[in-house]
Design a protein around this nucleic acid. Structure first.
Lengths: 147, 147
DNA sequence: TCTTATATTTGACCAATTCCAATATAGAGG
DNA sequence: CCTCTATATTGGAATTGGTCAAATATAAGA
């Protein structure tokens, strides 16, 4: 069984309470912001600073244990899902859901002219309004700050 | 002939020197940041405040005269190109080039499960390293701040 | 030309994130 | 088990990209 501490050790990372807690938290919920992760980690181990959370998430990201989803206009979020997928994002509140790529090797990942770039990945984001923000805008209210 | 002022008038926007200059600037160069646009506008009309530039770019964007390209981790940039296309972005310096969508109605824009969202558009970003940042990283240097 | 709605300016403010030095701690070696 | 050292965490300050609000200036219709 691959517990959080095992995963950390496998990547040559020190096993600290904060890192284990962060991995556990991301196992139960996807697309959490740094702040949400810090709060959830605090509930488990007592306390962590925001800066430590930024730093540990950087470490986990560099080790490939989590992925950072960084959409313009909203704070970065982190996820553990390993399989290839894209995102459906709400422009109103930033709410994020996974979508399976309908064609893993479809036109999305092909590029006729690389123009000298070393292309590493293709990111596909479907932008729209989530159910909540749809009704909010329909009734004249501004989209809610959080989903 | 559709001059900048004609375009503005057509959209019911007032014709001001700053707006005309901004449109002209974006006609000669693509993917400029607010700051770069402010500087270029100043060269043409003497002076504009950064805030005015933010504001006028908002107005031009709302009118559909320019498009805002907003990639995470880098300041927003603006472009006038009208035809559908995607972007190839450098994760090192943020340098941006247009790429034609290889299949306008390919899998990119299809989505099996909308999950209640009102989907408005699909954004495809190819991330990689530009020629300059490739050689910079190859020679051990950090990628340059600007392309 | 006069008027008024709309732009621009100025300056304060904000959130997300990074940087730095000081302190604490995981885990290897004895 | 204890010590040592590299690595994590903390706390505080700084940065960046951008927004907000009030005062002033200006485009364009009457």
């Amino acid at each position: 069984m691959t517990t959080a501490s095992t995963l950390l050790r496998e990547q040559g990372l020190r096993v600290t309470a904060a890192r284990v807690a962060a991995l556990d938290v991301l196992d139960t919920a996807a697309h959490l912001s740094t702040d949400e992760i810090a709060t959830a980690v605090r509930e488990r181990i007592g306390s962590v600073s925001v800066q430590a959370t930024y730093h540990l998430l950087d470490a986990l990201t560099a080790a490939g244990l989590v992925h950072r989803v960084d959409l313009a206009g909203f704070p970065a979020r982190y996820e553990r899902r390993a399989t290839a997928h894209h995102h459906l994002a709400c422009r109103g509140c930033g709410h994020l859901v996974d979508v399976d790529c309908s064609a893993e090797d479809g036109p999305c990942v092909h590029l006729a002219d690389r123009q000298g770039f070393a292309v590493e990945r293709a990111e596909v984001i479907f932008w729209g309004l989530c159910p909540q923000c749809r009704t909010d805008t329909a009734t004249g209210r501004e989209p809610a700050a959080a989903p």
